[in-house]
Design a protein around this nucleic acid. Sequence first.
DNA 1: TTGTATGCGTTATCAA
DNA 2: TTGATAACGCATACAA
Lengths: 333, 333
Amino acid sequence: MKKRPTLADVAKAANVSLMTVSRAINSKPGVSEDLRQSILMLAEEMGYQPNQIARSLATHHTAAVGLIVPDNTNPFFAQIARGVEDTAYKEEFSIFLVNTVEDPIRERAALDSLSQKNVEGLILCSSRLPDDELEDRISHFPAAVLINRELKTPLSHAITINVNDQGGAKSAINYFINHGRNLIAYLDGPANSLSAKRRMEGYKAALQEAGISFDPQLVECCAPDTDGGRIAAAALLARRPDVNAIYAFNDLVAIGAVQIVEEIGKEVPGDIAVIGVDDTPLSTVIRPELTTLHVNLRYIGRLAMRTLMDTIEGGSSSTAIRIEPELVVRDSA
Amino acid sequence: MKKRPTLADVAKAANVSLMTVSRAINSKPGVSEDLRQSILMLAEEMGYQPNQIARSLATHHTAAVGLIVPDNTNPFFAQIARGVEDTAYKEEFSIFLVNTVEDPIRERAALDSLSQKNVEGLILCSSRLPDDELEDRISHFPAAVLINRELKTPLSHAITINVNDQGGAKSAINYFINHGRNLIAYLDGPANSLSAKRRMEGYKAALQEAGISFDPQLVECCAPDTDGGRIAAAALLARRPDVNAIYAFNDLVAIGAVQIVEEIGKEVPGDIAVIGVDDTPLSTVIRPELTTLHVNLRYIGRLAMRTLMDTIEGGSSSTAIRIEPELVVRDSA
DNA sequence: TTGTATGCGTTATCAA
DNA sequence: TTGATAACGCATACAA
């Protein structure tokens, strides 16, 4: 690897001062057009590339943000990351990607590392940190966007983006009810999941509004994957064979439920209707195609990055953004 | 956001010189144990965090690497990224993630940006740059790992990691042949895909070795997704209804093919056997479960990062690594 | 329009 | 064991 020339090298070669080269490179006023051009030519020729590290130290701007997700492999976060990266590219910002693997230790390490790297902003997804600590650590960043996490006390430089899980659940349950389903089960997600909690609220609320009393027997917790869905659906249907609708924590769980329903000789949606959440690419690949709650994750990512840029540049209007999921009716309900 | 104390601040508060604090923080010799402890306490108390930017400028070490992928949303690259991040975390390195969206312009921009940020290494997946340019640009990095891309002239600081696509294709075709299939079609990937080219080679080679002559009618190009698979399979089966085995470019294509086969009233694998590539999570979710070629992508990611670290730290043994795919027999063949 | 001095926060080098 | 000074590569502020 060849050693890169510095501003001083170019200056020497051009027989001008370091500063004129700097001005020429950065398109700043104070250099005659002729000189600028010839310097630019020379710099190009020498293969000069500005050293961002030095520049950052001098300007206190790193043009970098941190993106912390539980797992970049999860399509949910992969889509968000894609959106973030999309607008980061347009803004000429770089992004540091970190996985926490749902481990608070790793999340803390990530926050420390990013802070030390002087990122100008932070996008933190599904933080597992306790409220107090979270707020304290966020205050070490110039700006932050929290996805899938609420904040007790609003911070001026921190914006939250949350999906309206309650509302989504309600619209799914209402859809069931409007289509004549009256025994609606809920395959709930992991106990520590914020989304699971909120969807449960929506489930209960929708039932109550419809005058249907809540029956704990119709709820089953499960791991948020296909196997989890299979196990939970099997247990549920063994206990309550009369169920005629299932609201699943996510698409994978829904798919597991569909499999079990068909394996016990019933039909989807004829006998039992199923609605998932997330609208992953999967949902149009399997048969029957999955009816599910859609949120534009890529849009959320873009929105997060844009909002972050706004608050970095001096303040965004909003402080808590709520995304409304949309029921996409396909063949499973 | 509170202003962070600097080394000088801590030094002043501790009534010692800047350097003793630096030594204490960095666990370097030259400080009495008592002093070190008290300085560490004080630093902790003041909330001191080293400024990595300044440190990088002084040491020429950024503890950061760049990871360039076509699309982090593609499970293939998502898994690799996860592996990379896994070992980066262990090595206390940060990773810059960039998507190229298969756009050479964006790839060039990514390379420039990363180079200016002084990353210590680069992991570049499926580069679309011409050989000459690629080699030139790679030479601007201290170390590089190329995934899914070969290099004409071996570079000492650049390692390539490639999946043995030819071998994988051959093992799939051989499996078909050993199970009595004789009319084996290939749903090929996009024309510009290196993998597609290599799999085609393996397909032809396996046929030749088995004494079966290659029939262009049995090959159909398609977009690498389910719809592409559907369209291609429909065209193929309309043209050659006698086909009894299909080797698909990837799992999504395979799924599309399975759907079409079933829609025209035939059975998988009874009438037509199908083998995919990638072993995505999808393959165990759909029915019949997909027989497919498996490669441990996360392992590849880890390997890439580890190899990168090795060459950063002064040279790795290998220069071109080849990963052998493994046929996972499930229900579709 | 151009150039000089100074500082960003840290480490390396040499001196005490 | 400690400390002063000079880098690192660039930009800001001010002078010419």
